[in-house]
Design a binder for these strands. Structure first.
Lengths: 254, 254
DNA sequence: CTCGTAACCTACGGTTCCGTAGGTTACGGA
DNA sequence: TCCGTAACCTACGGAACCGTAGGTTACGAG
């Protein structure tokens, strides 16, 4: 469920924050503005805040976004955000969690065997499906991808040491890569390669794909189908056997 | 020149910042402490501050580091930092610039043809040299690598729009990858591949290597020679022709 | 010994932001 | 029609920082 995260109206209008200060004008019970103060249900407001937060976090990073800014963009005051999420970190956590879920679900769905079709899928096609799923995700939800790629501010537990005690975080991608291990490990075993290296190769593949996605996010130059084609080309054939014109195995869908 | 960035004493001791507040004790002209207040030359202090800044930025990110913290770790007061670098961003810029220089120099040196040796180098060996140079760098200067990999806070020019106007930044790596273009473009041309895709492949390779480096930075599990071996294995042979036990072409050095 | 200067300090103004206390308005069921 | 409750507000305390003004100390040349 909830496959498209863009189903919420995004209120951008009441961003009056730039005019130095608002004079304390007399209480007007009804000002004739374009955007009336809408009163939403809790659930609606929650979704709206999540949506706005996602966009802001993606563009400016966690630290650079203030609660007041989020609230203002939603046409609402700060305490509302606190009531819903307990603070900035709470909201951020929900946003990240959702996006991570969207992404993993997308890829899992792309990799899932078609029910009723027991044909063995070529590993290369698996690669291609996963890559295409990722780029579809990037295309559909660029902000979500930006958030997942960005470095994480996970507040270290108060009381924890100041040093780089445990492997704090090297970005969410390391985690994503670990999710790929299982899949890749299975393929390795099936092809007689030592599975102990699977984690290493997961990192490589994820890094390759993520960086390319990040780059493509800005330039948008080659069509994504083409990018994925080359991605698979490199991952599968290596530089040694690069195909001049890689072709996608799977017929272009929809 | 300046190949080893670790030639500066790192003063870690005077980190008394955690004891809530220092009581305004009477002016004691000489307190019998272990670490006397050393008075350095401008150049020395500058180097020390750069060193401390690099370590802090690497561990906590730009935003999470305060000027006061840097000054305190150096056993010095805030204005000293301002006199040397004009502010936090100034110091950060110098740090980043240096590290970027170190890295690019290392790789360039590894790729430079041995003078007097005109033998054509196999592309695979170029790959291997570059990879090894990177991992040597990571090994020697992990904080520097962390900084280069981290997301950048580059203050967007004041007056610029709030929107994601131009391709602001997707990390320094995108830049690094662009530096790889030339090299890769040459190789492409020499092998009859369309050079228009070189940028794309640069991104892929850089992403692959960077992510792996980031991961290795924490786990440190397989020896770096082994990691580089597999890196080259994937990049060169692709998943299709993976070698079970990749061997480094170049004899292990020093 | 003297004095100019470079290195360094304390102290503070100003800003930004988080989080909360306590009051106000609209909606909807009884 | 009345009233409880959910949604929302204004206003403030307090902390963390940045950056600077203005004064103090040590070093070294003459």
């Amino acid at each position: 469920m909830t496959s498209t995260p863009d189903d919420v109206a995004q209120a951008d209008a009441p961003d009056e924050g730039n005019v130095t200060e608002l004079l304390p004008r007399a209480r007007t019970p009804r000002r004739p503005e374009v955007r009336e103060r809408t009163r939403m249900s809790g659930q609606e407001r929650r979704e709206q805040l999540l949506d706005i937060g996602r966009r802001l976090f993606a563009r400016k990073g966690f630290e650079a976004v203030s609660v007041e800014e989020i609230a203002a963009k939603a046409g609402v005051s700060k305490p509302v955000v606190y009531e819903h999420f307990g603070g900035k970190e709470g909201l951020y956590a929900v946003v990240v969690d959702r996006e991570m879920g969207y992404l993993l679900d997308s890829i899992a769905a792309a990799l899932a065997p078609t029910p009723g079709d027991d044909a063995v899928v070529h590993p290369r096609e698996l690669l291609e499906r996963a890559g295409m799923a990722l780029f579809d995700f990037i295309d559909r939800d660029p902000d979500g991808f930006r958030i997942l790629v960005r470095d994480t501010p996970v507040a270290r537990a108060p009381g924890g040491g100041d040093t780089a005690s445990r492997g704090t975080f090297a970005g969410l991608l390391v985690d994503v890569a670990e999710q790929v291990d299982d899949l890749l490990g299975g393929q390795f075993k099936a092809h007689g390669l030592p599975t102990k290296w699977a984690p290493l190769y997961s990192q490589m593949l994820v890094g390759m794909v993520a960086q390319t996605g990040q780059w493509w996010l800005d330039v948008r130059k080659p069509r994504k189908e083409e990018v994925v084609g080359h991605l698979v080309n490199l991952a599968w054939n290596g530089l040694q056997g690069l195909e001049t014109r890689p072709r996608n195995v799977r017929a272009p869908r929809h």
